[in-house]
Design a protein around this nucleic acid. Sequence first.
DNA 1: CATATCTCAGTAGGACTGAGATTG
DNA 2: CCAATCTCAGTCGTACTGAGATAT
Lengths: 162, 162
Amino acid sequence: MIWAMDPTDIEIAPLLDAQPSRLLSQVALTVTRSTAQALERLDAHRNHFAVLATLQAFGPQSQAELSRRTGVDRSDIVAAIDQLERDKTVSRAVDPTDRRQNIITLTSVGEARLEELAGALERAQAAAFAPLSQTEMADLVSMLGRLREHHRRPVGDDAGTS
Amino acid sequence: MIWAMDPTDIEIAPLLDAQPSRLLSQVALTVTRSTAQALERLDAHRNHFAVLATLQAFGPQSQAELSRRTGVDRSDIVAAIDQLERDKTVSRAVDPTDRRQNIITLTSVGEARLEELAGALERAQAAAFAPLSQTEMADLVSMLGRLREHHRRPVGDDAGTS
DNA sequence: CATATCTCAGTAGGACTGAGATTG
DNA sequence: CCAATCTCAGTCGTACTGAGATAT
């Protein structure tokens, strides 16, 4: 008996398939791609959403603070703000009390833009995670959240280094 | 009251934190990094493990088949085999019955190498996924597996387009 | 002088594409 | 002539680094 190599019929080595890290990166890649495409249709980028959402949540703040809160690198924040400023969704002004910093502020255009992007993201994610029930989604998010926390600490869990 | 910006004390915007796709890619990045480092210490690469494991599971096969089964791009398979051949862990020979193909075969050195890499990977993953119970790990793998399957199909789930 | 911020140029690695040569 | 395979050169987007300018 000969199997035509149906693209949906490709067997994966059990030893390989048993590697959660591989599964994780494969799924992350496709999910990231579909959400990125959804945002690209609106001429936006993942980092734009991250910045806008953070500004909405915590108010005007410096680029350094945006970087820390979003996890987006400081140099990529620069590029994101460049674009967002061009789009009038944020304003960038030197902080008069500390002239090293820029104070980034969400405009009303930015508020609307954020809602637009949030909607697009929600739809893209609903499609990407369609096979999971609500309960499963909650479990997944909980597990991933704990893993992110776990990896936040470089090596030692030094809650009490004196 | 003023909060010192303790690195472990950075709040994330709820709207941002509610995006599973972001969580997923963040965790995938750190997990991938730690496993990649574990393999790098042995002068190996994720793709090397994928190829060796697939050869062990399915026997000698062409590079095209290895590409399909591992999900690694055909051109990256070339680079991986180049290295593995240099290391004597696989052999590469033109298929006499179809001279377009190379038949890649796992050597006994390769078998040992595979065990070595599998061990390193297992340890790295145990550390990376430490916060999850065995049950949770099984759930996670099950969910990710279904998501990968879901994304395998380009757009429509056309089991019956007529 | 040490530190923090913003910015830019550039690096490193990963996924992928396009095309040429060869063979079926 | 069309299709599959192997290979190489090169593209594209991502995360990140190093360093300079400025300010505290």
